[in-house]
């Protein structure tokens, strides 16, 4: 093969790569663009400030405040609960356990696998637990399902963050005579920005997921006050309204999708800045 032919092959593949890169990158803009174009005309102040009024589902007055609040409750509750479970776990795995011990290895693998389990399976499993415990579809049920879903996310993210803490810091704390628990506190303080990132990530996942809350959280036109009441969620609201034949209601689905997208974008951008800030501090 002559050098010219070899160069041509490289040029062709480089062009293909640039093309692929553009396609992957632009898919985000296509998605967000589609949602904005479709949703913006229907986005009114009522949408975010009112709960569904009488006849909402045939196209009359109201908004999706119930779903927004429901989603925030649900994702918030699950994140708090998830943190309470996952911080001790990741501290234990990283500080108390020796690296490479059987438990730490199998725990890492277990969380990697749990991370990959689809949310519909978590939903189905949580639903089985609820039947077993006699809990009906409610905010509590939804929180349980979403907590199960986000614990692996939290543990994995925290794990990565703790791994960035220099070993010397841990050793320094321990050699000053601190107990492991005190060392853990030092490390927790060090990784605080990382925890924020993990929280935002988990919160974003929790607020956007449908399959896990489909049968666990129920749906309601009211803002839930007690934990055993059914709660609406934004993704589910989009899903239901979209299947309506009435154009007005469909329009609200687009607007709800836009609201959800905005929430997610805000979360991602904020966590990006926190992450950027953290790396600046560490280096």
């Amino acid at each position: 093969m002559g050098i010219k032919k070899r160069k041509t092959e490289e040029t062709i593949f480089k062009a293909l790569m640039v093309l692929a890169c553009i396609m992957v990158g632009s898919s985000l803009f296509l998605i967000v663009g589609t949602i904005v174009v479709k949703g913006l005309p229907y986005l009114t102040w009522d949408m975010v400030s009112k709960i569904p009024q009488g006849g909402f589902y045939i196209g009359e007055e109201g908004g999706v405040l119930n779903a927004i609040i429901g989603s925030l409750y649900l994702a918030g509750g699950a994140t708090v609960l998830g943190l309470c479970i996952s911080i001790p776990i990741s501290i234990y795995l990283n500080i108390y356990l020796k690296r490479g011990s059987f438990l730490s290895k199998s725990a890492k693998l277990a969380f990697d696998v749990l991370f990959g389990i689809p949310s519909i399976v978590y939903g189905a499993f949580a639903f089985s637990i609820m039947i077993w415990m006699g809990v009906r579809a409610s905010l509590l049920g939804g929180v349980i399902a979403v907590t199960l879903l986000i614990i692996p996310i939290l543990v994995r993210t925290l794990d990565e963050v703790i791994a960035t803490v220099p070993k010397e810091l841990k050793h320094a704390a321990l050699s000053l005579g601190a107990t492991r628990w005190e060392a853990a506190k030092v490390i927790l303080r060090q990784i605080r920005p990382g925890i924020y990132t993990a929280v935002l990530l988990a919160f974003g996942r929790g607020i956007g997921d449908v399959a896990s809350v489909l049968f666990t959280a129920g749906f309601s036109d009211n803002i839930p006050i007690y934990i055993d009441e059914p709660a609406a969620t934004l993704p589910l609201a989009i899903f239901f309204q979209l299947s309506s034949p009435i154009p007005e209601v469909q329009g609200r689905a687009y607007a709800s999708a836009l609201i959800l997208t905005i929430i997610i974008l805000v979360i991602v951008v904020v966590s990006h800045f926190i992450a950027a800030k953290q790396t600046k501090h560490n280096i």
């Binding site: 992957v24 898919s27 985000l28 998605i31 949602i35 990530l201 974003g204 996942r205 607020i207 956007g208 997921d209 449908v210 399959a211 993704p235 989009i238 899903f239 999708a257 959800l260 997208t261 997610i264 979360i267 991602v268």
Partner: peptide
């Protein structure tokens, strides 16, 4: 892109 919810 990874953060965009499935329903979107």
């Amino acid at each position: 892109l990874a953060g965009i919810p499935p329903v979107i």
